[in-house]
Design a protein around this nucleic acid. Structure first.
Length: 589
RNA sequence: GGCCCAGUAGUUCAACUGGAUAGAAUAUCAGAUUUCGGCUCUGAGGGUUGGGGGUUCGAAUCCUCCCUGGGUCACCA
């Protein structure tokens, strides 16, 4: 509807004022005023010097006369409130009924391929709550981009090498007694994580012993025997020592098995994987290239730097004096590798926490300076930390929330609540279990996705799984209820008359439904699952108040079929919105 | 200390990116219903948008100076 308005308005300005106007401030009318859409005329006064109310009336007259969908208007100060005819909405509903891809832009084969990177864990410990936020954001942004007509390729860069990986390896060798996931009955990532913790405990013990025998803390940290072992192992790893490599592969294999289970349960997937053990040597050619182009410079000791002071940033190291690479070098190389692997990609999204804002700012700047044409299409999807009601998560203090444990807890809470509410009576055990999973995960996902990515989030497991309020289960519940209505009317004809008067609440729902394509589009541009989450909630809220006042199934008037269509359209849009968020929409609850 | 981000009802979050009287949920309170106090429904209160100044028809949103919290400034990743 907005598009129609814009078309007519700009034609009007062209014709009567010979002015090119393409942007109009149009918004849904606030509930306290009468109307459906509101045009704010203030911005137009710069183009046409008139009194706000006069111009509004002038435009209102024009629209009523020339646009059949517009019934009437009223003016409040500089606001032109436009009333849209019921027929428009009924027609819209009819189209919606036919259009099964409503809100989704089909992807073209030859354009808009985008890589979305997310998760990117270390292989020395299990995933935690922070990864969950990362994964859910990455996966839903990928879904939103796909809905907007992009071809999306999801990937991650796995941090599978380095001193921290060697730490768990050393500890396992020392204390492991050949323990395996099978023999210990632990998930592989949990098992490896256990040895990472063991390493740290032993390390601390050795440090305090050394301090006791007279070393400074700094010395002790460097000289602790177990630390020296880890360092030595890293050297051997880099020298390709076959025994070390075998152990490394074995333990990483365990971790990957564990991760795979967690990802599966979360409902996320990846099209490809990049491993740091492959990419950590990359980037040196890029550095050479930068030196040739004069973008980088070499210091006397041989280290390579880039000067970003023109951009208001500092100098940044790109290559150590011994010629080895740093984090930035690798990321330069990895970015280039990805564009080499996928020559047709147009852009890339990195889902990484906001503590790396600076790093990505620098990375993108450098790639721009190097003159890659794709460098302008890089985006850092930055997100805030996840806090708990008990305080900040700190791995050292053991207050980290393990992803698997959290999902278990969500599952258990969903179970408890469902049983209390008597919702699962008469279901088979399998059905029950899958229902608890759906509800628990839905609660978790929705709770996290509904807040603006860049803000810190306070995660309260209890509040998230509530069946009331702005929660996942509430939305799932409404969806399930609609399904049940639709089941009961199955087989009936869904033809309805067009000369129908819409109930106020029906109109409200239709107005919300109409927003869906623009919500997807807007979310795609802004990488914002939160927008969709809040939108679905609005829709569900309207539907619930509608449902309570309009008894769909006992009404036998001619408008009954309209209501059935309305229900099925609401259900379709809820399902699609949830799909974009990676949340399952259950048929029964 | 420099730079970046955030600060909105008691609490958790919105506010379509500069629009009308800042909205939901939850908590609280008051009613209705009854098997008790739990479930459900109706309603109410609750805000100087961290503070000051500025920009304009109009500011939570933009500029500026403070305050608070977080992050980041490694030849770590």
């Amino acid at each position: 509807m907005e598009a129609i308005l814009v078309k007519h308005l700009s034609a009007y300005f062209q014709k009567h004022y010979q002015k090119e106007v393409s942007a109009f401030e149009i918004q849904p009318t606030k509930p306290q005023f009468e109307g459906d859409l509101t045009l704010v005329v203030f911005p137009l006064l710069k183009i046409v010097s008139k009194k706000p109310a006069d111009l509004a009336a002038e435009l209102g007259d024009f629209l009523v006369e020339n646009v059949s969908e517009i019934e009437s208007y009223n003016v409040v100060q500089g606001f032109l409130n436009i009333q849209i005819s019921d027929l428009y909405y009924v027609t819209f509903l009819k189209e919606l009924q036919k259009n099964t891809t409503f809100g989704f832009v089909p992807a073209k084969d030859d354009s808009n391929k985008v890589i979305v990177e997310y998760s990117s864990p270390n292989t020395n410990k299990p995933l935690h709550l922070g990864h969950i936020r990362n994964n859910l954001l990455g996966a839903s942004v990928a879904a939103i981009l796909a809905a907007n007509g992009n071809r999306v390729h999801t990937t991650q860069i796995i941090n599978d090498r380095g001193i921290h990986i060697c730490k768990s390896m050393v500890a396992w060798q020392k204390f492991g007694n050949a323990e395996t996931p099978t023999s210990s009955n632990l998930k592989g990532d949990a098992l490896v994580g256990k040895y990472y913790v063991l390493f740290d405990q032993q390390y601390k013990k050795e440090i305090s012993e050394l301090i006791f025998s007279g070393r400074t803390e700094e010395q002790a940290k460097k000289e602790a025997p177990i630390f020296l072992e880890a360092k030595e192992m890293l050297v051997q790893w880099e020298q390709n020592n076959s025994k070390v490599r075998a152990l490394w592969e074995q333990m990483n294999g365990w971790v990957y098995n564990g991760f795979t289970q967690t990802y599966k349960r979360l409902g996320v997937h990846f099209d490809s994987y990049y491993y740091e053990s492959d990419t950590y040597v990359l980037g040196k050619e890029t550095v050479d290239e930068g030196l040739e182009k004069g973008v980088f410079y070499k210091k006397e000791d041989g280290s390579v730097w880039v000067d970003l002071s023109d951009e208001g940033l500092d100098e940044k190291l790109l290559l150590r004096s011994d010629g080895t690479s740093v984090y930035m070098t690798q990321d330069l190389g990895t970015a280039k590798l990805r564009f080499d692997d996928h020559p047709d990609i147009k852009g890339m999204v990195y889902t990484v926490g906001n503590e790396q804002d600076y790093h990505f700012k620098v990375l993108f700047l450098i790639l721009n300076k190097l003159g890659y044409d794709w460098a302008s299409q890089l985006h850092h999807l930055s997100y805030g930390m996840v806090d708990l009601p008990s305080g900040k998560m700190k791995s050292r203090e053991g207050t980290v929330v393990d992803a698997d444990a959290l999902m278990d807890e969500m599952h258990a809470t969903a179970k408890q609540l469902s049983q209390e509410l008597g919702k699962v009576d008469g279901m088979s055990e399998d059905e029950k279990e899958s229902l608890y999973h759906t509800i628990g995960m839905g609660a978790l996902k929705y709770y996290i996705l509904k807040v603006d990515p860049k803000k810190r989030i306070l995660f309260d497991p209890k509040a998230s799984v509530d069946f009331n309020g702005n929660t996942g289960p509430f939305i799932q519940y409404t969806y399930a209820r609609i399904q049940s209505v639709l089941r009961k009317v199955k087989g009936q004809t869904l033809e309805f008359q067009e000369s129908i008067t819409l109930h106020d609440k029906e109109k409200k729902i239709l107005k919300t439904l109409e927003q869906f394509p623009s919500v997807v589009a807007a979310a795609g541009n802004q990488y914002s699952p939160a927008l969709i989450a809040n939108y679905v909630y609005d829709l569900v809220k309207h539907y619930n108040s509608y449902y309570q006042e309009v008894p769909i199934l006992v009404d036998d008037s001619s408008s009954r079929s309209l209501r059935v269509v309305l229900c099925s359209s609401v259900s379709m849009v809820i399902r699609k919105s949830l799909q974009l968020l990676g949340i399952e929409a259950p048929n029964r609850m």
